[in-house]
């Protein structure tokens, strides 16, 4: 056996799985949505001329963007605290951060149904305090959807950021202060740019995650806040309109791709040391 080929050979089983079960099917879905070209074009035109479809796409992008930004902010706060607190609190706090991540999306959406429902905890509280005199509809709004998604993804943000924040040398921060940077300056000019790789990795995972968060979208957004994953499922499994489902899938992949490229570009602007 040729030694040169050994490394490649070892990766062949995994490569084959990825190729046959991921790249080929997804590629096929994308290609089929365009083919044959004349009909594909017509299907896309029809799809986009439907105002509802445009609403759903824009809503999905908006919700995913808000979710990404909020999760990263929450995650940044928690991760910064974890990297700065005394060492003995580190592991408990990490467990606290990871634990929700390891429970399912359904459970976590369910928790917010208890809180935000018509007879939920928050409405009870508001009624008892006399702030409102009848329950406020909070479920199946963009508020409940974003809350559920941010809840889903904040742990992921924490994990992506703890690593990079840990990687910032204490001496670099000390040096910045000694050169005259005040605490705010150290944060904006040093910590934030150095955290960019983590923000990007987290951002990409959260954004794509939001595009796939079916359970959360279904339970906390419902039909009124339909986003692309719920719409795709609806088309594919309820009305069996696989053509439209394929178009939605393609749009989702394109949106993901654009988001990844945009974030990479953003990263290099704020931190030229970001690789790739």
């Amino acid at each position: 056996m040729n030694r040169k080929w050994l490394p490649l050979l070892l990766t062949v089983p995994a490569l084959a799985l990825i190729l046959f079960l991921l790249i080929y099917p997804v590629g096929d879905t994308l290609a089929e949505s365009f083919l044959p070209l004349d009909q594909g074009w017509q299907r896309y035109v029809a799809f986009f001329s439907e105002p509802y479809n445009r609403t759903v796409i824009l809503r999905t992008i908006k919700i995913a963007t808000i979710t990404t930004v909020l999760s990263l902010i929450f995650g940044f706060i928690a991760a910064l605290f974890i990297t700065r607190c005394p060492a003995k609190y580190r592991t408990p706090l990490l467990i606290l951060s990871v634990f929700p991540l390891l429970t399912g999306a359904v459970v976590r959406a369910f928790a917010w149904m208890i809180i935000l429902g018509r007879k939920g905890l928050l409405n009870n509280l508001l009624l008892n305090l006399g702030i409102v005199d009848q329950p406020v509809p909070m479920l199946f709004t963009s508020f409940s959807l974003v809350t559920g998604l941010v809840y889903l993804f904040t742990p992921l943000a924490i994990l992506s950021l703890v690593g990079v924040l840990d990687g910032i040398e204490k001496d670099v921060l000390d040096a910045s202060s000694s050169l005259g940077a005040n605490p705010l300056g150290v944060f904006t000019q040093v910590i934030l740019p150095l955290a960019v790789p983590g923000l990007i990795v987290g951002g990409v995972l959260i954004f794509t995650g939001s595009l796939a968060a079916f359970a959360t979208a279904r339970l906390l957004g419902g039909d009124r806040q339909a986003i692309m994953p719920t719409q795709l499922y609806e088309k594919a499994m309820v009305s069996f309109d696989w053509n439209t489902a394929g178009i939605i899938a393609t749009v989702m992949v394109l949106v993901t791709l654009v988001a990844i490229l945009a974030m990479g570009k953003l990263a290099r602007r704020f931190n030229p040391a970001t690789g790739g």
């Binding site: 079960l21 879905t29 796939a212 079916f214 795709l232 594919a236 989702m252 993901t256």
Partner: peptide, 22 residues
């Protein structure tokens, strides 16, 4: 990065494609 592709393809697109194609 090829082995991290499954993280980047929205799961719901993956599930649907798998059903349809394979």
């Amino acid at each position: 990065s090829v082995f991290f592709l499954p993280l980047l393809v929205p799961e719901i697109v993956f599930g649907f494609s798998l059903l349809k194609t394979v």
